[in-house]
Design a protein around this nucleic acid. Structure first.
Length: 559
RNA sequence: UGCGGUGUAGCUCAAUUGGAAGAGCGGCGGCCUUUGGAGCCGAAGGUUAGAGGUUCAAAUCCUCUCACCGCAGCCA
């Protein structure tokens, strides 16, 4: 009855119509074309996943293409990290990793073709003059005084541009379109500019470089792309994309635009993210609080969670802001099925079981993942002195607090029922120890007489615990839209609690052998991942995302 | 308002293209539970930006209005 309409969107509808009409011999070929000028973020992940998964869905291909037309901004380092990120997200471009810069010669020939047609000319105007001649959105521009140069003169000058006879910025090659067009992009756009600068791929071979508008459609055409998917800000460029390809009379892919991803409590601007890194608000591009793909990875996000997220938000031309809660939900959803569970006490307080034999240690059995029986079981050491979470004990327990308090019995997970009998305090009135008794009959966590307890808490045997540092991460910004304030900079809204370092965490000994990069669940706390800052002497875990927490909600609602 | 876009539940998207406005997330309530997790169930939530028009029938077509976004780089 309900049709399978997963992941349907307006782009797929266009594609399905094209397929039906037999366009492009029913071939589907997309591309992901980043400029290698920085690190990728979750917004790019949306584009990557859209382009690659669309190709997958229709048995097509997707190219990875570096749009490296500006030597001033691009670096090999970024090529490397972009490749890693795309691969990590789970996509394979096979042997189709291309560079726009490898098409420079071809593009040059096409430009000569346009000059010969009288559709392009060499212009001597400088930047400021070009701006003046261009006019404004509401006011028509004026023709450049160099617009009517002869074909021969243009050919000769363009050759000289290439040969390095002019200095940076001295001349440009422009398309001859319409200086009075209502679309600013059609007012004789620049096709080539002179930049005497080394290029990461072509070195010093070229000193003229194609602009995006001239290059991009050609790149798509050369690679036989069928559907060129890009973000909304290129909508106004589509007429120009089409104009170049039509003028050249070459294979003509279709450009389709969709809206960028915006997430609340973070920012997506490359420039601003760079500012966070440069001014040390974060530790680097892969800081676990960053929305970069490498940051997300280090935070404990999985490719599956990110792909699920992108699938759920859908594709449209509507510019909205997606709730971070959805991203977090997707991570929990994925990790709940996969992550092994462990006991970890983040804010420890000592529990002494007065009636438990001194020097005795037992091994108790624990389930590794209740969602996955095949994950098996493990042994937990239990002894007289334990750590439990500070928050799991309250001297004056309020209503609905079901955890430990003096006189109440709770269950230690996989172990025994214990009852708190008294507490010791230091001179400041801080609780130092909680004294309890245990019921030997309740081993494993069930009472033979059938009595129930209201809560189950986690614990770690004191003498067996591993000491570690745990980095508790929270949202980078404390308000939903850090860019919304007209007066204040987004920097003023950085969440001061976005990182809290817990130095004195006590982990169950089994965590010693955990694999790098494998997310685990600390029971009742959340999902964590071993950080790369760990070494032989010290493990460091990052909080990926907390578990949903009813008690926290009750407390919050009280306020 | 020069041109180009976008307005459907708190958020993100659907609605077989003119045929009974729906899902996921969030929030709320309940059940269950050896994670206050997970899971299950339920109700709430809509003048489809607004006004007119065409039609037996409009989120969908037409007209007007409003709000928001993009465009004046030799960036992409």
């Amino acid at each position: 009855m309900i049709e399978n309409k997963e992941n349907t969107n307006f782009i797929h509808q266009i594609i399905e119509k094209d397929l039906l009409e037999g366009k492009n011999d029913k071939r589907i070929h997309t591309r992901f074309p980043p400029e290698p000028n920085g690190y990728l973020h979750i917004g790019h992940a949306k584009a990557i996943i859209l382009s690659f998964s669309t190709a997958e869905k229709y048995n097509g291909l997707c190219n990875l293409r570096f749009d490296d037309t500006n030597p001033m901004k691009e670096e090999e380092e970024f090529v490397k990290s972009i490749k890693e990120n795309v691969k990590w997200l789970g996509y394979d471009w096979a042997d189709r990793c291309y560079f726009a810069s490898n098409y420079f010669e071809k593009m040059y020939d096409y430009a000569v073709q346009l000059i010969k047609k009288g559709s392009a000319y060499v212009c001597d105007l400088n930047g400021e003059e070009i701006r003046k001649y261009r006019g404004t959105p509401k006011m028509s521009g004026e023709n450049s005084p160099y617009r009517d140069r002869s074909v021969d003169e243009n050919l000769e000058l363009f050759k000289k541009m290439r040969d390095g006879e002019f200095s940076t910025g001295e001349k440009t090659l422009r398309a001859k379109i319409d200086m009075s067009s209502s679309n600013m992009n059609m007012r004789d756009p620049i096709m080539y500019r002179i930049i005497h600068s080394e290029h990461h791929n072509t070195g010093n071979k070229w000193c003229i470089y194609p602009t995006y508008d001239w290059a991009h459609g050609l790149e798509d055409s050369i690679e036989n792309i069928t559907h060129s998917l890009c973000t909304l800000e290129f909508e106004d460029h589509r007429p120009l994309y089409d104009w170049f390809l039509d003028e050249l009379n070459v294979y003509h892919p279709q450009q389709i635009e969709f809206s960028r991803l915006n997430l609340n409590y973070t920012i997506m601007s490359k420039r601003k993210l760079a500012e966070l890194v440069e001014n040390k608000y974060v530790t680097g591009w892969d800081d676990p609080r960053m929305p970069t793909i490498s940051g997300l990875k280090r935070r404990g996000y999985t490719p599956e969670a990110i792909r699920d997220f992108v699938g759920r938000i859908g594709i449209s031309k509507n510019e909205g802001v997606v709730d971070m809660a959805l991203l977090e939900h997707c991570l929990r959803d994925d990790l709940n099925k996969k992550a092994l569970r462990f006991m970890a006490v983040l804010n420890p307080i000592k529990v002494v079981i007065d009636n438990y034999p001194e020097n005795q240690t037992e091994e108790l059995e624990a389930i590794n993942n209740p969602e996955d029986e095949s994950a098996g079981k493990r042994k937990l050491p239990f002894s007289k002195e334990l750590y439990i979470e500070k928050d799991d004990f309250m001297e004056d327990a309020p209503k609905k607090f079901w955890r430990l308090t003096v006189g109440r019995e709770v269950r230690l997970r996989y172990a025994y029922f214990i009852k708190a009998t008294s507490i010791s305090k230091d001179e400041n009135g801080e609780i130092t120890e909680i004294h309890c008794t245990y019921d030997p009959e309740t081993k494993g966590g069930n009472a033979p007489d059938g009595r129930k307890v209201k809560s189950t808490i986690h614990w770690v045997s004191a003498k067996d615990a591993i000491d570690t540092e745990v980095r508790m991460y929270d949202r980078l910004f404390s308000i939903s839209n850090p860019l919304s304030d007209k007066e204040k900079s987004y920097l003023e809204f950085i969440n001061p609690d976005s990182l809290k370092i817990l130095e004195n965490c006590k982990l169950e000994p089994n965590l010693k052998n955990i694999n790098n990069g494998e997310a685990v669940q600390f029971e009742r706390n959340g999902y964590f991942i071993l950080d790369k800052d760990s070494n032989d002497k010290k493990q460091i875990f990052n909080l990926a995302v907390t578990l949903r927490d009813q008690w926290k909600k009750i407390q919050k609602n009280k306020k």
